[in-house]
Each structure stands twice: as C-alpha cells, then as structure tokens.
Design a protein around this nucleic acid. Structure first.
Lengths: 242, 242
DNA sequence: CGTCCGTTTGAGGATCATCAATGTCCGTGG
DNA sequence: CCACGGACATTGATGATCCTCAAACGGACG
C-alpha cells in the first residue's frame, strides 16, 4: 500500500477519459479531468498490488471502498448453494468496481492476473464527488458506461448456442484490450472454467466450441491463453447477434 | 405535452428516493431531494402520456433526452437481422431510461401499457447536474442501482432451464411492483412473447414452464396478465439461484 | 356472434449437460 | 536441468431439455 503520488496519478486519467456520453448523446464531448481533479482523486486513492487468485473482497463483507483497476484482470463471482460458481463480471484496466448493497459487497472479487488497484474509500469519494460536480460527472459517465456494457452482456447471454457465446466473449475481450499484438491476437488471461462460469456453459462446452472454431479456421489457438482471429468476416458474423 | 407544474413534481420524488447507496455502503443514508432540487428537475421535465405499443424512440435516432418512467411499463428491444427480437429491459415506475452511445439511442423503446413519462433534455439535465452536485448524486445512485439490476439479470440469464428462468422473472416482477394486490398476486402486463424475448426462450417454452408451475401448484394463472404465488417456499427455491 | 391474435399442447430433432477417461501445460523440487 | 505431480484442458458417449414445426384452443374486441 503506497499513497498515490503525482506520477501514478496519470495512470488514473485514462480511467475517466474517452468515456462515451452520459445517458445519451451530449453534444459536447466529456472533458478530461483537470489537474486539480486528478490531485483530488489521487489524494484519496491507495495503490495496491495484488497477486493472482488473491481475494480483493468477499461478498457480504462491509463495503468501505470502491476500486479502480489500473492493470490486470479481476473477476467477481457468485458462489451458489449447489457448489457451482458464476462469474458475474470481469474487470479490466480502467474499470470501476465494488458494487454493493446495503453497505455490503455483493460478489466475492478475485484477481485473475497480477493486478494494480486504486482503492477509494467511499466516504472520501462521496465527499470529493459532492464538492466537485465535474469530477462526479466523470464517475456518472463511467457507471453509465458499465451499465451499457452490462445490458450488452445480457444480450450475449440470451444466446443459447455455445459457439455464438464463445465468439461473443472473444469479441468482448478484443474490445476491452486494444493493446493487442499484431493482427487480432487476443490475450485470454482467465481459465476455461472462468469463461464457462461467465457464459453459463460447462467447461466442456467451451472447450468444444473453441475447438470447433479452430477446426473451421475461424480462430487459431496458441496455448491456453492466447488466440488469434483468422477469418475476421466469419468471426464477426458469429459474434454479431444472430 | 404539458409542462410539469409544482404538483406533479411530487411524482418525481419517489424516483430519486429510497435508493440504495452509491457503489457501496455509505454510512449515511442518501438524503431526499430538497424542494429546490425538485423544482430544478421539474423545470426541465416535460410530462408525456403514451399509449400502449407506441414507440418512444427508435434505435440509432439522435438521443436528445432521457426519460423517467412515472407510471406503466416500457420495454427496450433489439431487432435482429434474423427477424428475431430481444427485449433488453423492461422499465417500471421510477426507472430512468434512454441509454445511448455516441449521441444515438441504442435500443428501440416501446410502451407496453399506458405510460406516463417525464422527458429530460440531456443538455438541460447536464447543466442541472453540474450545478447541483447533490442532485447529481441522486442520479449517480440511480444509475448504480440500474447497474446492480443489470448484473443481477445477467445471473438470471445464465440459467438455461426454462422453469427457473420464468420463476426468476416472476420474482423480478414482484420486486418491481410492491403495490400488488393481496397475497402474492402479480400483474404481468407484457405478453408471453415479450417474456420469451426477454428470457431468451421461445414463446412455447415460456408457456410450458408456466403451465408446469401451475400444475405443481406453485403458481396460479388467472387469465393472461395475472398470476398468483401459491407455494412461496418452493417458488423462492426455484427463483433463488440454483 | 365471429374473427383475430395470443396462447396452449403435441411430436420429432438438435444441442448442451453429465459422466468418464485421456491428454497437456506449468510450477515445484530434486 | 530434468522429472514429477497436480491442475487444467480436450475428447467421447449417453441422456435430458429446449427449439422447431404444426395444429388446436381461448379470450378480447369490434
């Protein structure tokens, strides 16, 4: 735990930049944070380095902070009575997470890869947002963006066919991380089990779907955590809602 | 279209009241709107009365306003190339809707029942939110609440069994409208087709599932738009994530 | 009272879950 | 550096569930 200094604050900027408009089309583009706002966020943020598979917080525990993902991948999971597990969401760089209700976190949240986090105590954040409406507007835009993503993912989950779901998941990953290597190479940091729990499929179904996509020369599978899009047209056709 | 006067403004208050905390547990309860804030919202709102099956806005059209649902049920749908249709969300009383991207609405949105709407031009709303951080905080809470709902519904859609999905949908309806008649009687304003398009099932599957629930004496079906929960325990067991 | 739309019910086929066995990657320790 | 162990992943066979196609039923409205 180290206090955010002036340098790392820059890392926070992308979090709140280039965010699509609020609930709707604002004619003026959302402005960047001012230096003063950056300092404000930095002053309440604590930087954390988390190791893979570490628990960031548990469901039902008191929710005293929200988090901004600086780097790496995080998952929020729900444990079911039947012993099954569901991945509610993956959180990528620049995502804001820490959803709670009645003062308690909703879903146990775990690092998938090595992760850099910024921890924002809610009381401090609340004060900052109420004192700086422009800053609050950035957060409003961010939450709205996550709402849009969640709605989109609902559409993804309506599909019942395994191949379509997997294709849309890959598509989702590709959007998340434009920092990919040449020509549609996509990093897939999570396990097949995680993918299955996110898509509502079994591990076997995910495996069969990816194999089928490879067999059809739509994707190439390089090891476990790296895939490549070979046939962009057919891939888009699958990922685009049928 | 009539301008909101002082009286109807009271209708808006519940919209922004009793909203669970921001992203997490704030120790202080979210305060109500002040009279001045109510006037502020009222001054930019236009009240609309919409007839069933009327289109409120179309996907891709310029998004110049967001809407608060004052009464009735609204659905946002996505038309697919295959001719199929998916219901992205139902919007109930006090919901905020009008999700857009790059200045254009994402989903065609249609009244299911007779609906009372408050139309808030985004530029006016933006100005109001930036000038009144407390008011903006109410909206932030509301959007966060809708994010929470969307996440929860993602979990609903991960289930593949028809009976479970239908049970969870009924559960969702029950939560939405606590203004129900005696003993678990629930109003079901939308058609079976709408339910199917929301749940990612076929109309037949929804019909079979409801029939099965009735056969097992878990629900009673009174006509097309009214159902009753007979066996609360078994109903909750089904609706609770398996 | 009749039509139309929404709904229910039925039979056959496709897809995914389940159970089971085998294969592969990766980190650990010798 | 190599060998080993365990977790992760692939592949196969069987059964359950839902989708598709099809027909009959019922309520709402003119």
């Amino acid at each position: 735990m180290e206090l955010l200094l002036e340098r790392p604050v820059v890392d926070l900027v992308p979090t709140l930049r280039a965010i699509p408009s609020f609930e709707t089309g604002l004619t003026t583009p959302t402005p960047l944070l001012t230096p003063a706002q950056r300092r404000r966020v930095a002053s309440i943020a604590t930087k954390l380095e988390i190791r893979p598979r570490s628990v960031i917080y548990r469901a039902e525990s008191p929710a005293q902070a929200v988090f901004i993902n600086g780097a790496g991948v995080v998952k929020s999971v729900q444990e079911l009575a039947s012993g099954r597990r569901r991945v509610v969401a993956f959180w990528f760089a620049r995502d804001l997470f820490g959803l709670a209700e009645d003062g308690r976190f909703l879903y146990t949240t775990i690092a998938v890869t090595p992760v850099t986090l910024y921890r924002l105590p809610v009381e401090d954040l609340r004060r900052a947002l109420l004192e700086d409406a422009q800053l609050q507007f950035q957060f409003l835009c961010k939450v709205t963006h996550e709402l849009r993503e969640a709605q989109h993912q609902k559409l993804l989950l309506i599909r019942k066919d395994a191949i379509g779901r997997v294709a849309m998941f890959v598509h989702l990953l590709e959007k998340q991380d434009p920092v990919v290597a040449p020509a549609g190479t996509i990093d897939l940091p999570m396990t097949r089990s995680d993918v299955a729990d996110f898509l509502g499929l079994t591990l076997e179904a995910v495996s069969r779907a990816t194999s089928e996509l490879a067999r059809q020369r739509i994707l190439a599978i390089h090891g476990r955590h790296r895939i490549q899009i070979l046939d962009r047209a057919r891939f888009e056709a699958l990922a685009g809602q049928v």
